[in-house]
Amino acid sequence: MVADLDSGVAPATAATAEPAPAAIVDAGPENGSDAGAGVRRPKALGVMFWLAVGYLVVLVLAAIFAEVLPIKDPADTFSGTAKNGPSAEFWFGNDGAGRDIFSRVIYGAQVSLIIASVGATLALLIGGMIGMAAGYYRSRVDTIITTFTDATLVIPPLILALSLILFLDSEAARRVFILIVVFVLLSIAPIARVVRASTLVWSEREFVLAAKTMGARNGRIMFREVLPNVAPALISYSLIVMANLIVVEGAVAFLGLSVPPPTPTWGDMINKGRTDLEAAAHISLVPAAVMFLTVLALNFVGDKLQERYEPRESVL
């Protein structure tokens, strides 16, 4: 820390010299209200938010502990049950090979959630750094990065994903790894744009200028001053990215390019039930509904968090 400062004296850090950014937001006047009214109370997240969180928690726990849950093996086929509808033994019914759809939906969540969460996290790290660099340094760095992200965003994501999978993939065994790489590449650009925009706002703030004036180096300012303020919006946006990745994984699986069988994935389950939509619609509709609810819940939670942590000009 000392070495970061030209003076060789260790003053109070910029962060401690300034009020905490969150406190700034919370303490600021809201919509022209009396500044003397005190600390702004955060807006309530609402019942739907907590229902969505609850659904996601249950889904994640079920996926993590699928092995120990008293559910059937997702690859086991049960003679005479093919295409049967929901029953006491098979809550969501059976697929065309007589497998338990309930257990396949839970195991299918593993693939979707692993690929989406790992993909979103890595994209968050890489896209976040790129976006911060663009937003903080501006000028030529910004031009180069913005050109790259804009160019990437021009290509339809599904087309890009399919092309990359077919180009990179040679063995089904490496498919999860390949999918994660592809999804990270897909997500970097949108995340970088969001972070860049947020960084542009925060890097103009007084406490950042103060840190610069005190001689703090750029890296230190970015990670100690800007990042903590960008992070909440970034994390909430990452949930939306996860939701998008689940949809893309579903589409890729629907086209038979996700993880190889017999590992279940939601997209693959929807695809396999496609031929029986008239006679046994539940085979496709159950995984479709679970995917729909998961994406809806992630979007909802992400939106709410983004609303909550989004910097507002009026507040700043």
Partner: peptide, 29 residues
Amino acid sequence: DAFNVETNELVASMWRDAFGDEIEVSIAP
């Protein structure tokens, strides 16, 4: 083809039912 993949998954499951963990069949579409 999704139908063919599922048919052959059924065959693989019959083998698993018969031989348990002593058989590993990788289905490659």
